[in-house]
Design a protein around this nucleic acid. Structure first.
Lengths: 305, 305
DNA sequence: ATTGAGCACCAGGTCAGCTTATGCTCGACG
DNA sequence: CGTCGAGCATAAGCTGACCTGGTGCTCAAT
């Protein structure tokens, strides 16, 4: 490989037209410059400067090399600055995994803040259920993920992960407005004969519902499943059934009524997780942004942990 | 400056996902790779790989650096190849100075040949009188020049220059067709009362004419001056006067007649000059092309030297 | 349990490349 | 026209970067 240090010296020599002057500017002795140029000439196999006692004259090859070489070195300098900036967290890439409800209610604001603070950072967002994103965080394909956990579905975290609580949200029972239960302080038992609209099988939302109902002595008749709480709520509004939705997913849809459970104020917990070993400098900023946004999101049935 | 060797190693490590494999491909020991990566991490101030006993995991910073760095290194490799090619004379820049007559009769063919052989070479052509181009050759602003010298105007060349003869051409006396001298073997004395059309004052063409006439005992009455032999010949055709033109500049214009001098077969000599010290690899090819073209141009009043 | 692979660390040796010193050449200047 | 200073080349010596080889650790596979 051509020695880039020698190339830089050559560029400076061509620019100044003198070994001595180039040496002064680069902080070398003129002897060092002379030796560097000689070495470079040996490397390319061509005389690049004609020497006279008191001056040098660049050969045309030297001019060409200095031209293109100068551009390259400038690019390299630019790269170096990029790296420095990246290290300071001003720039870089952050890959975030999130689950659907959070991605619409919490993440956008946090990302907006992050993007405003760090306009040159490249932020990528993937949306999936916690079971799917956790392995990605572990393998390093994601830097950060938002996950949730239901009270009744104990979740254990791999110990390489740092888990920070972000939000606590109530689980709300949602019924059509005209439903007799559409008054506060409903008991779950009152709903044992209802048709239920639940999250997809296997999700902890669905598991939670099953366990909750089991605790009240019945198994819910699940008529429809959807992971999209908008769809769930539309179905409730249409009178198809009742549902258990976390507060983050709740939108006061006309024709529906939502209330917390009377005796069992169940909650869903939202966490940020990342590998403890992850050194991505953007991580800190992203976590900060998320926490800040969550503070402001408190209200209704949503608390800070 | 970030160490480019380390950068190359880093890129290879990211590509292969392993210090050991990168070491094998780059011809290092894995210890060397480990040390290089450590040094690079120290240089940028960030941990770029998480080490485990049996594997490594690139941090996101490493991926970014490898991305951009890979491009840069590729560009640098490309540059190195360019330089190599240039050294082999396949590429490069050649600046040629020439005088008007030659530039229209000799140079185009030679350049065509040169351009065909070396499609990537960059060739620049400047047109001027020999007095003007020689200093440029000496300062290195031109690599090569075509110059002429008249028999009667002794020319001395600075000794740093290599001078190679290219062509010898007759000086032709040119008269209107109906002129009584329009028969071969005219003597200069026969034209002493004519009006002359000469090159501009100070050019060696004009000097030569003056000296030639002086040798025949008269001073030419110079009616018009032009360095453009096309113009000169048109003036002759129009009956304005007679002229002395070198064979290279002669075109058998209707209404004119040209012939060599009877007793004094004067000639103009065309040379290529370049600084002996000039190492431009294209020089050799250019000189060869010119000589070859000149061989084919022989005929009429034009000889090889 | 053993083996092998991957990585880190240490010690030692090599070599690139710097400085210092010296000499040469040429232009400037009294 | 000698003297001086500036610019470049070359030799010698030293330093530090970096590679190799060896050792030790960990983990996965057999």
């Amino acid at each position: 490989m051509l020695n880039p240090v020698h190339l830089r010296t050559l560029v400076e020599v061509v620019k100044t037209g003198s070994f001595a002057e180039a040496a002064r500017r680069l902080g070398y002795t003129s002897s060092a410059v002379s030796q560097q140029i000689s070495a470079f000439e040996r490397a390319v196999g061509v005389e690049l400067f004609e020497r006279e006692a008191h001056s040098i004259r660049p050969a045309s090859a030297a001019l060409l090399i200095a031209d293109r070489g100068g551009e390259l070195l400038a690019a390299f300098d630019g790269f170096e600055h990029e790296v420095k900036a990246m290290v300071q967290g001003l720039r870089g890439r952050l890959r975030i995994g999130t689950f659907p409800t959070a991605s619409s209610r919490v993440v956008p604001k946090a990302l907006a803040k992050l993007a405003a603070d760090l306009p040159d950072a490249e932020i990528r967002l993937d949306e999936a259920e916690p079971e799917d994103v956790l392995p990605l965080v572990l393998t390093g394909e994601l830097d950060l993920a938002l996950v949730y956990a239901y009270d009744l579905v104990p979740q254990s975290w791999p110990e390489e992960l740092t888990v920070l609580p972000l939000l606590d949200e109530a689980l709300l029972v949602m019924v059509p407005s005209e439903h007799p239960a559409a008054k506060n302080n409903v008991r779950l038992e009152d709903l044992k004969d209802e048709r239920w609209i639940a999250s997809r099988d296997g999700t902890s939302g669905a598991t939670c519902l099953t366990r909750l109902c089991a605790a009240s002595g019945f198994a819910p008749r699940i008529a429809f499943r959807s992971n999209d709480y908008e769809v769930v709520q539309s179905l409730v509004a249409a009178g198809v059934g009742v549902a258990l939705v976390p507060a983050l997913g709740y939108k006061a849809l006309p024709g529906t009524h939502a209330m917390p459970l009377r005796h069992k104020p169940l909650r869903r917990h939202v966490h940020v997780v990342h590998r403890t070993a992850n050194t991505n400098p953007l991580l800190r900023d992203a976590v900060n942004a998320l926490q800040e946004v969550c503070q402001n999101a408190v209200g209704g049935y949503i608390n800070q942990p």
